[in-house]
């Protein structure tokens, strides 16, 4: 029985590491929602493009891994801005559901275009990292470093939001859009900045995931729905809630996968999401309505 518990512990730890990455992914989406009031359904597809960027820059062009990471972050960030300017801005004043649908269209578009451009093969950057071995538990460094990087990124983002003028404005805008010009803030410019940051976070997420997973055009579907659920569960726009929800989700998937099969982990996570929507529609940290 003791060995059994060790494996469970390893599962839980793996869940924590996965939770860290998931929290980072959710953070970008949450920021976008909080500020612009739009859900980027194609968020994980931006990440997919970042993963391909890293793959091609390192494999085909022989770039240094970290240079490729930097390039991926910049490129996805620019894509985020383009997405906002070309797709979101024209529907900013139409019904909220239209905003969901245009980004849904972008999901289909980006996934299919990636299939055209890159083919359906699974690709791997081929960076293998050793595992951290603690007694009978072994945790891959790729996961540990990803979770740590995610954590550092989240702290930096928090400091930015808390300590800078721009960060304060980003937090303020969701609380009262109408008076922003009175304090000298142009909402349009804040939307652009936020889209750039959200894109950069997706790019960073891509860098962290590319070390652990193969890239393929449909990889967004493995992470996208999960990321929305985490955001909604945490209360859209509520970053702390999203953080907690990410760890709950990661544990459900990890432990569900340990006892049954990874798909059952997903079933549990999504079913939990649906139930929670009825119990606490305002998110796990939200007050009463």
């Amino acid at each position: 029985m003791e060995i059994f518990d060790i494996f469970l512990l390893e599962t839980v730890l793996n869940g924590v590491l996965f939770g860290g990455v998931l929290a980072l992914l959710a953070l970008g989406l949450n920021l976008i929602f909080g500020v612009i009031d739009v859900v980027w359904i194609c968020y994980a597809e931006l990440m997919m493009i970042g993963m391909y960027t890293v793959f091609y820059l390192t494999k085909t062009f022989g770039w240094n891994l970290f240079a490729a990471f930097a390039a991926a972050i910049v490129i996805v960030s620019v894509l985020g801005v383009l997405l906002h300017v070309l797709v979101i801005r024209p529907v900013l004043d139409s019904e909220p559901i239209n905003q969901l649908l245009v980004t849904g269209g972008m999901l289909t578009f980006m996934q299919a275009a990636a299939t055209l451009a890159f083919g359906i093969e699974f690709r791997n950057v081929g960076v293998s990292m050793p595992s951290l071995v603690l007694g009978e538990i072994s945790l891959p460094w790729s996961r540990i470093s990803a979770a740590l990087t995610a954590l550092v990124a989240m702290v930096l983002l928090w400091l930015f939001l808390k300590k800078t003028y721009l960060g304060t404005a980003i937090r303020a805008i969701s609380q009262d859009r109408g008076i922003m010009p009175l304090v000298g803030v142009s909402p349009a410019r804040i939307y652009l900045t936020t889209s750039a940051i959200g894109g950069a976070l997706a790019g960073l997420g891509a860098c962290l995931l590319v070390l652990q997973y193969d890239v393929h055009p449909a990889i967004g579907l493995s992470f996208g729905p999960l990321t929305f659920m985490v955001c909604v569960l945490g209360g859209l726009g509520n970053m702390l809630g999203g953080f907690i929800a990410a760890f709950i989700f990661a544990q459900l998937i990890s432990i569900g996968g340990f006892y049954f099969h990874i798909e059952w982990g997903y079933v549990m996570a999504f079913a939990f999401f649906i139930v929670m929507m009825f119990v606490r529609p305002q998110g796990i940290l939200g007050g009463k309505s």
Partner: peptide
């Protein structure tokens, strides 16, 4: 996947 590429793009254009 060419059809899906066009679908996606058109969905976006239709909604806008």
């Amino acid at each position: 996947s060419l059809d899906s590429t066009i679908y996606g793009l058109m969905l976006v254009l239709f909604i806008i």
